[in-house]
Amino acid sequence: MIRDITIGQYYPADSVLHRLDPRLKLSGTLLFIISIFLFDTFYGYIAVTVFLVSVIKMSKVPLKYIMRGLKAIIVILLFTMFFNLFLTQGDVLVRLGFLKITRQGLYSAIFMGIRLTYLILGSSLMTFTTTPNQLTDGLEKLLSPLRRIKVPVHEIAMMMSIALRFIPILMEETDKIMKAQMARGADFETGGVIKRAKSLVPLLVPLFVSAFRRANDLAMAMEARCYHGGDGRTKMKPLRYHRIDYFAYLILLIYMTIVIAISVIENRLPSFL
């Protein structure tokens, strides 16, 4: 169950997308996320969908695998859609007792659903096609101007990459501890809020203890391998833009132009642009 969560994982494959520069993929993802919040008309979403689908196709990551990432947010997704559906004011379509569904509510629920889904798909596609190390390298490089104002960019990037490495390990561990406590009669499933919160103690304490132990071990292992911060470090795989990256930037530019154009035509350009 817990193993099925695929968000943040790398999926090894040999695709154009895997070969692109992480800096490009990071800025591309950011632009994509902005683009999905640009409008709430179906025409706009056709453009976004076409873009997303073709990128997914290019990535060679199985669609089924990408979709599994959605499992993790299904609750949030339904929750958001539910609120939008019932709590938006406007022209009433259906009345269910004290609840009412409005046309505006229906639309905003659908669009919210689409946005959240695309948000997750888009950003998990980035992690599927980029190794965490590349990702953090890219981030480090993109954010490096901030170093001038004393932001510890290298350290942040290193922390991120380690977090990503340990997510699956800690998930497996959670699964294991949970089972071990269930073997001692622990019950994680029944009871009220307080009882359930209390029942988490036997799970969380060992999990934290283990996380600290791992952190300690890892710090030692890193030191033993001569890690001493970002100073004087070289890169095994330094980031260099290739022709394909410039081409991809061009496509991104075209994509953004199209979606902004649609958005202008729909006359719904949000005020922040």
């Binding site: 294991k176 501890i177 089972k179 071990a180 406590q181 269930m182 073997a183 001692r184 009669g185 103690v201 036997p202 304490v205 060992p206 203890v209 283990s210």
Partner: peptide
């Protein structure tokens, strides 16, 4: 679960 006691590998990791 109480009648069939299962001691996992590294059981000390579940002490809390």
């Amino acid at each position: 679960r109480s009648k069939v006691g299962l001691v996992f590998q590294y059981p000390e990791h579940q002490l809390f």
